[in-house]
């Protein structure tokens, strides 16, 4: 019995060792990111590993705010993220509700089409999306940044699954009371869908805030750059000459903060989102 105890103690210890080691591997890059954004350039170059800036300097942030278009990118990112998230939440829940509850002709075929759409790899649509935006004269506009992203097949799927799990009785009571389809949806069903709506809001927020590839085929004017696009330009473009790491890392920190905050606050919804995304497969 005693041997067994010491063995389980050893395995507990080994378990923690592995967990802590990987927690360091997964989190230390962020420590490096934040620490080096507050270093001076020579310090960042000389001692990249150290988590303590020596001396502490905010010149990276000053430069990124004053010498780059970062404030503009930030504004564009906020605008695009709000519009895309609001659009996705509304349109995906409408479509999800219709597919789950309203018995209209072509419903099954449409749902199969939505599943089929989810299977198309986004990268493949790159150049094709540009062709359509260009053809309609939308290329290089806010519309091009927002409109193609405003609907997401996976979001429709998540909402449909959710509405199917809600008992029909409540809606039927509303309908018998004479509420129309829209009224039932808006004031009875949607308020019940809060957990699913939060999940969808969070996935949409994270997806649109981080979106990069779409901006490459949608816009080219620097005035329309979002944060990821601006940072990518900063790194690979003309400004990328020279190292300037504190500046670049500072910009990267600013791009990471909103998602990090939301992640800490709404962690369980993130987890749910990841697993619901898995179920579609």
């Amino acid at each position: 019995m005693k041997r067994r105890d010491s063995r389980s103690l050893a395995s507990t210890f080994a378990g923690y060792f592995v967990l802590v080691f990987f927690a360091l591997v997964f989190l230390y890059p962020f420590v490096i990111q934040v620490a080096n954004s507050f270093k001076t350039e020579p310090d960042a170059a000389a001692d990249a590993l150290s988590p303590v800036p020596h001396p502490f300097s905010t010149s990276g942030y000053e430069k990124v705010f004053l010498n780059t278009d970062l404030p503009l990118w930030l504004g564009n990112s906020v605008l695009v993220t709000i519009l895309v998230t609001a659009g996705r939440v509304l349109l995906c829940s409408m479509a999800g509700y219709a597919l789950a509850r309203i018995r209209f002709r072509g419903r099954k075929a449409l749902f199969s089409a939505v599943i089929g759409v989810m299977a198309v790899p986004p990268v493949v649509l790159f150049v094709p999306k540009f062709l359509v935006l260009n053809q309609f004269g939308l290329y290089d506009s806010y519309t091009a940044l927002v409109l193609p992203l405003i609907v997401d097949a996976a979001g429709v799927f998540i909402m449909k699954q959710f509405f199917e799990s809600v008992p029909v009785s409540v809606e039927e009571a509303a309908r018998i009371d004479g509420a129309g389809v829209w009224r039932t949806f808006w004031s009875v069903v949607l308020p019940m869908a809060r957990p699913a709506l939060i999940t969808l809001t969070i996935i949409s927020f994270q997806g649109s805030w981080n979106e990069f590839a779409h901006t490459l085929v949608a816009v080219q004017s620097p005035e329309l750059f979002t944060l990821p696009r601006g940072i990518a330009d900063l790194v690979s473009g003309s400004l990328g000459k020279g190292t300037q790491y504190p500046l670049k890392l500072g910009a990267a920190v600013l791009a990471t903060i909103p998602v990090a905050v939301i992640f800490v606050v709404f962690q369980r919804y993130f987890v749910r989102g990841a697993n619901e995304g898995a179920e579609k497969g």
Partner: peptide
């Protein structure tokens, strides 16, 4: 997190 930001890191 953003793929672009993390690539910079």
């Amino acid at each position: 997190t953003s793929s672009v930001a993390i690539s910079v890191v």
